[in-house]
Amino acid sequence: MFENQNFIREFADIFEVDPSLIKPDFSLIDNNWDSLAIISTIALLDEHFGVIVDGKKLTNCTKASDIAALFSI
């Protein structure tokens, strides 16, 4: 997930942060991890990796590596 630069750029857009900040320990909960951010992430994961993630599991993620761990991506 962290190697896909297109994904990282769009993922950073969701939080309105610089893509360089998107590392495994990037805190979701400190960056407005609300329903819109979660929905945006669902769309990105589907578009870039072809996976549709359970909303509840995604909601429970606290940092970026938690998302990657859901799919081993």
């Binding site: 979660i38 669902i42 549709i52 909303g55 509840k56 995604l58």
Partner: peptide, 12 residues
């Protein structure tokens, strides 16, 4: 409304 789940349903 559970937005993420509605979105998932829609995409699927």
């Amino acid at each position: 409304m559970d937005g993420p789940e509605i979105f998932n349903f829609t995409l699927a």
